[in-house]
Nucleic acid binder design. Structure first.
Lengths: 401, 401
DNA sequence: GACCTAAATATAAGATCCAAATAAATTGAG
DNA sequence: CTCAATTTATTTGGATCTTATATTTAGGTC
């Protein structure tokens, strides 16, 4: 189990093994010939490397007769595949009020999923970790696995996260959300900002080198991908949008500096629903029961108060888009998270507000199609990327003794 | 001269050669023992690799008796150094009104320098390239070199530049500035945005993974380094600051959207010097003769009109700092270029405007110490980085036949 | 000149890859 | 059923490169 650097003579073998394994991680079943084409190595070398990977527990030779669609002539090729039992990855969206876990195999196929409501403030840091561990255990048990099968767990939290997985000490909230998962979950764990994970998920869906993903339900966060790379910042603060309220003409009243579109729509609606001078269907709802969905729905039906709120959100979104496009040359702004479902009217209004004479092309504004799963999907994607990046850094679950 | 990939058996040798060469690029003279420590290879291997690099023209064995401070025991070590004749790098600041060229050796020591005023609009694209070629020729001749000695030339231009070295087609100005140097200068050429090069120079001076460098004399440009990496954006637009005028409460009047602090100070002073109601020392100057230096000087002497202008610039700078700090977690904002000399009062005022209650630490605001040479210094630094990154991609000037 | 030391060289062994030759497995034709 | 054709697997020999271990060498010291 020593991770010591291999001697220089063995370096070449390791390089080739990694290349081959990276290829295997993206294929179902493959022959030596296919691996030769992918890696540029000789047949003898490929087979030798495959031998090593079988011994290590990464690959297994497949011998079932169902050799669909193979060439009708010649000696049949030996076929390999990633060993199912080698391990799985776990993604966890550790939000403020919900946990979502997905267990996936090493090719990214979702094996199992669990969701649970939690009360973070009642649980505290230790309680959040305990609850996460339990939920992961259940999700693994659902698919007949246990914690030893997990090669890598990626956790998304609603807080800035630096490169070491820590959050700045400023806010208590951040420390509560980033509950120390990397210490107290089993195996290798990566902690990442939730919006960053959503951005990774979006980019996997529709690749683009310069895209911003806004996670904007209750709290506001942005994942920024520039030149194909996720931005982090020293303390993980890249993607914070505090400047909106600091710069903007409107002084921040009661709405918190980090409120997302969902929270804003709800707050604005509740505040104005009685003082509003026109007729509004929102008044039929109990004031404490109005939420963002109701506002979006009313706006679609032509309600004027809801329309006003949509317009204000549109202004806010347009501002964000202008800054991102101008400062970072962002090509596409994606609204992700549960809020994405009803956000279209806001997008339309924001598009109409974008300046037309600014020289450079305008950013595209779109809603995500991943829904509320964006964060946890991004966690899986991130875990797979990590394994593909240096597969040999992970040890597959050993063969039966 | 074929850049074909080496056969896999020779790959290891190439890896080791690159590592050793990278080490040599940062040392004056070194022994095999030192190289062994740096690369982790055996003595026999190191000597073999050195042999190869001598044959290739990268290294030379040094045999002069001046073996300063060597260990007094044992057989003397063979000592190697980078071959001076292997080549040089060239940096060119191809501004709107000035060209500056620096010729440096492969360790970054400045060998020669030339500066020339030009009239870009009279010269046109072809004229700019011609003028650049001539100035480079002269600078090389000054130090007894010619164009064949140049391994890499890096050119800084005041325009957005994408990863392929091209500028967006929107403005004629950008096309004029990015004059096609990569096509028409001899040897390998990289074209880069001038503010980006200034950022590279600043980072080399005082390393920091998250820093913004504002090049803000006549035109405004920013070089953004986040997570230790320069941001570019798809069309090279990262670092543009158009949002300032789009968002801000003040509608853009005559000042151009991309005016730098120097241009703004001059324009504001000239416009208000006569209508200003107080006394101002600026009135003693001819209206067409006032420039930014005069305004800064007057402000230092307590002139109220100059003070007003400084304050307006401070507001602008503070806005920029807030956005950069919040959106990208930038730790330090550097004002670079010729304007940096008198900028201190603006920095002071801007610091006083930064919000104190924003949770995260505030960005540091500093003036560059590189003066007007920041861009060309960054060009040299960038060229060296390029060579260090994959030295074997460059062929040293051949040995005497 | 004998002696000491650290580096250079020489030699042998191990690891890896490639190229070419050989062997095996499968299909399809006669 | 046998046999050629075909494709792949395996074996073998050669080349490159690195390491480890001796052996030699170059300078200094006593």
């Amino acid at each position: 189990m020593d991770g010591t650097t291999a001697s220089s003579t063995q370096l070449l073998r390791q390089i080739n093994s990694e290349a081959l394994l990276r290829f295997a991680l993206q294929e179902q079943v493959f022959t030596a010939g296919e691996a030769m084409a992918a890696t540029g190595l000789t047949r003898a070398t490929v087979l030798g490397v495959c031998d090593g990977l079988v011994d290590a527990g990464w690959l297994e030779e497949v011998n079932d007769g169902a050799e669909a669609g193979r060439a009708p002539k010649g000696r049949p090729a030996r076929r390999y595949q990633l060993r199912e039992a080698a391990g799985v990855v776990v993604g966890l969206d550790a939000g403020e009020s919900h946990f979502t876990v997905i267990v996936a195999d090493l090719r990214g196929r979702e094996l199992g999923k669990r969701r649970r409501s939690i009360d973070s403030h009642a649980l505290g840091r230790a309680g959040r970790v305990r609850s996460a561990r339990e939920l992961i255990r259940l999700a693994l048990a659902d698919v007949g696995r246990d914690a030893d099968d997990v090669l890598l767990t990626v956790v998304g939290v609603p807080a800035p996260v630096d490169a070491e997985g820590r959050s700045p000490g400023g806010g208590e909230f951040w420390q509560l959300m980033n509950s120390g998962f990397d210490q107290d979950l089993q195996g290798k764990v990566l902690v990442e900002n939730d919006a960053n994970l959503a951005a990774i998920a979006e980019q996997a869906q529709q690749p683009s080198a310069n895209v911003a993903t806004l996670l904007s339900g209750e709290r506001f966060g942005a994942g920024l991908i520039v030149d194909g790379r996720l931005l982090r910042g020293r303390r993980g603060g890249a993607g914070e949008m505090r400047f909106l309220d600091i710069l903007a003409d409107n002084k921040p009243d009661d709405e918190g500096i980090s409120d997302g579109f969902g929270a804003l729509a709800r707050k604005w609606a509740r505040k104005r629903v009685h003082s509003y001078e026109g007729t509004t269907s929102l008044r039929r709802l109990p004031e404490d029961g109005i939420n963002a969905e109701d506002v979006f729905q009313a706006a679609r039906e032509g309600d004027p108060l809801a329309g006003d709120i949509i317009a204000r959100l549109g202004v806010r979104l347009a501002r964000i888009a202008v800054v991102l496009s101008s400062l970072l040359d962002i090509e596409r702004v994606v609204i992700a998270g549960g809020i994405a479902r009803g956000i279209d009217p806001v997008l339309e209004h924001a598009r109409s507000l974008l300046p037309v004479d600014s020289g450079l092309p305008l950013p595209e504004l779109v809603a995500s199609s991943l829904g509320a799963d964006a964060v946890v999907q991004g966690a899986i994607e991130s875990a797979l990327t990590g394994i593909r990046h240096e597969p040999m850094a992970f040890l597959p679950r050993a063969l039966q003794p």
